[in-house]
Simulated scan of single mutants.
Amino acid sequence: MGNFILQHMDNRTKCKPVCGYGYFGLYGMEDCHLWLDCEDMRDVGLEGAERIPSGTAGLVKEVGIGKWNGYDVVIKKMRRYHYGRLSHKEFEHGVQILKDFSSQSEILQLVGKCNQTIVTEYHALADATNLEKHMEQYKLYDNISTRFQLCIDFVHIMTIFHSGQGGKVYAHCDGNEVLILLWQFLLTDDFRLVISDVDALVDFEILNGVAKKKVCPVESRNYSVPFNAPEQHWPYKEEPFNISRMPPYDEKIDIWKIPHVCKIFLHHEYIKAIVLPHLLTIHNKCKNKNPKDRPKATEILQVYNNVYQHLFKNKSIV
């Protein structure tokens, strides 16, 4: 029938249908529906839109909560002052990624599109920067299982974009610090991750089984901060940053960030003390200065899953 998640507010189980390309299914729907187009959005009427606070909205789009046929949805409109060629291209790129990966439940579900407006599914817990606030409210879920599962979800999403679908792999270019990166992920009602903002994912073409290197196309951004991989740092310290002279890199820039993000999700020192010793070897590999020596996301996911299974054989730590 579909995916099942536990709804925290009233302890009811709710489900949604699993849909093919060109269709969507929201929690509570029994059947899939074609992606909404301009006529659908005009005739059916999207009641909108309670604006979501700007901290979660991003620079390019205004984001609000609306209704479609009684279902909560998110309405995203490109800001008027971002109607330039580059912003429009980035916006359309993000929409195409949502379409291309629509079969993956870990990718935000597209509901419809009309010109510079898109509609997506709604997740009440919002982005992952709100995790600790929600954990304080739902203390039953503040445990090793939930928190380590978020680490696993993060890497699992990475494996999806590093899989080479369509002859390309994708890497995060809009993640200059951990807070910015976490804004791009939503929390589901059962504390799982869904990636929502994919506009700045950059594609690397696969040639002879290897990703062709390139540079994140952000003209004014210098990625020389510890959160980013060394190959993203400006190597000519005596010269001002110039993107045209930046040495290229590949999707392994994502791998470098995994240990930091997982530590954020684990949060509590006692949880870190239980989990991180089991991840020390793979995390050290992630932090290898030579990207060729870093593991693939699939290898990290396998280690994470093995550690999870090992830890939960001992029920006392749950």
Rank of each mutant, 00 (worst) to 15 (best):
F91S: 05
R80V: 07
Q104R: 15
R85K: 13
H88N: 14
K77V: 15
V74C: 11
K89Y: 04
G94E: 03
H93N: 11
Y81S: 10
Y83L: 08
H93V: 01
L98I: 04
F101I: 05
Q96W: 04
R80I: 06
Y81C: 05
Q104D: 09
S87Y: 14
M78K: 15
F101T: 09
S105E: 14
H82M: 13
R85Q: 09
S103W: 12
K77E: 13
V95I: 15
K89D: 09
K76L: 10
K77W: 05
M78Y: 06
F101D: 03
K89P: 02
S105Q: 07
K99G: 01
S103Q: 07
K99A: 05
R80F: 03
Q104I: 13
Y81F: 12
G94L: 06
K76R: 15
R80S: 12
V74E: 10
L98A: 06
Y83R: 12
K99T: 09
G94I: 06
S102K: 01
S105H: 07
S102A: 11
S105L: 09
S103K: 12
V74W: 10
H82Y: 12
E90D: 14
D100M: 10
K99F: 01
V74Y: 11
H93E: 13
E90R: 15
M78C: 12
Q104P: 00
I75M: 09
G84Y: 02
H93C: 05
H93P: 00
G94Q: 06
K89A: 12
Y81W: 14
M78H: 08
Y83D: 01
K76W: 00
L98S: 07
I97T: 03
K76I: 05
K77S: 15
H82I: 00
K99M: 13
S103G: 08
R85W: 05
R85D: 06
E90P: 00
S102I: 02
Y81H: 14
G84F: 02
L98H: 15
S103E: 10
K76M: 14
I75R: 13
L98P: 11
G94Y: 02
D100C: 02
Y81M: 07
S87A: 13
S105V: 06
G84V: 00
G94A: 08
F91H: 10
H88M: 14
R85S: 04
Q104H: 14
K99L: 13
H93Y: 11
F101L: 13
H82N: 11
V74H: 04
Y81V: 09
R80Q: 09
F91G: 04
Q104M: 09
S105M: 03
Q104V: 14
G94D: 04
R80Y: 03
R79K: 15
H82T: 03
R80N: 07
S102E: 13
L86D: 12
F101H: 08
F91P: 00
H82W: 08
S105T: 10
L98W: 01
I75K: 12
L86P: 00
S105P: 00
V95W: 10
K89W: 09
K76V: 05
E92D: 12
G84H: 05
H88F: 13
Q96P: 02
G84D: 15
G94S: 06
H88D: 14
M78I: 15
E90V: 08
L86I: 09
S103N: 07
G94F: 03
Y83M: 12
D100I: 04
R79D: 06
K89Q: 11
Y81D: 15
G84Q: 00
